[in-house]
Design a protein around this nucleic acid. Sequence first.
DNA 1: TATTGTTATACTCTATAACTATA
DNA 2: TATAGTTATAGAGTATAACAATA
Lengths: 170, 170
Amino acid sequence: MAASPSLDPTELGAYLALIEVSSLVRHAVEQQLREAADLSYVQFQLLARLGDSPSGCHRMTDLADGVVYSRSGLTYQAQLLEQRGLVTRAPSRDDERSITVTLTDDGRAVLARTFPGHIEVVRRLLFDALTRDDVEALGGVLGRVRDHMRATPPRSAAPRRRRGSGSDSP
Amino acid sequence: MAASPSLDPTELGAYLALIEVSSLVRHAVEQQLREAADLSYVQFQLLARLGDSPSGCHRMTDLADGVVYSRSGLTYQAQLLEQRGLVTRAPSRDDERSITVTLTDDGRAVLARTFPGHIEVVRRLLFDALTRDDVEALGGVLGRVRDHMRATPPRSAAPRRRRGSGSDSP
DNA sequence: TATTGTTATACTCTATAACTATA
DNA sequence: TATAGTTATAGAGTATAACAATA
């Protein structure tokens, strides 16, 4: 397999541009979040995801699936947020094994206070150079990629599976 | 400040897709590099950049500008590569302050052995869902963003400047 | 037994500041 | 003085494995 694995120059260029752009955006955004609210990007993502939910809460597992790659990593970040009083954690009534993470008023306030600056950085870095057509094209293509990835065997969501390339039958 | 900072839904969607896609690509690629050659992504980038150079060498500063955000971070990674015999470091004849980093034969071999698998992951994840037009559009737009970013005050390349938004008097 | 989550631990990476040496 | 790079140090983040509790 992987006989002629080279990418077209066009593909290679797109890949390298993706890496460079996303790295710079990520870096700039992390810096802004750190200064504005002393939040890591993961922490911000957790708050944003909770804030986006109508109920303002999610189970740990749901959060882990969308944001972080290991459960322990999520536990770590959630603990930090809880210590700062930005979220609460409590067992779910639905399923006693699950923990429901809920955004507090303080957490919502921090989110509201942080979001504008975050968006500002993104817009300046990412969108100021683009036309509306560019933005639509970018979102369209990346959305397609995202859907493809979500449908693809997600190495992360299957901590059980040894990402072995064939016989993983225990 | 930042009175109406919200992004269009289109912009927000493009941004979120960019973050999710780049995170997943990065994660998958890092995993592959770690398993295939025990390389971090930064280390791979350094090797790739050196391999891409006609002379097979670069100054530390040039490498730092393109790959890493702090000089000490680059020193750290370069040391690891040197310990493994994948690069050499020697003072430049041109400017005795500079260190010239050179890819060794072993380094080139590792690069050659690692690149196909790397590309394979990228293609499967990123390009299998895209048409040629998609790829061209993606590369075009991201290339424009990259150019814009490179022209923009690079917070990273100016470790001296306190990125304070006006009065940075300590 | 399978799932949810935590803990303990070890390790990688990164950044800051102080330092040396050359231009 | 400014630039190129290293070192010391400290801290954040992540993953793995072992663990407890619920379904």
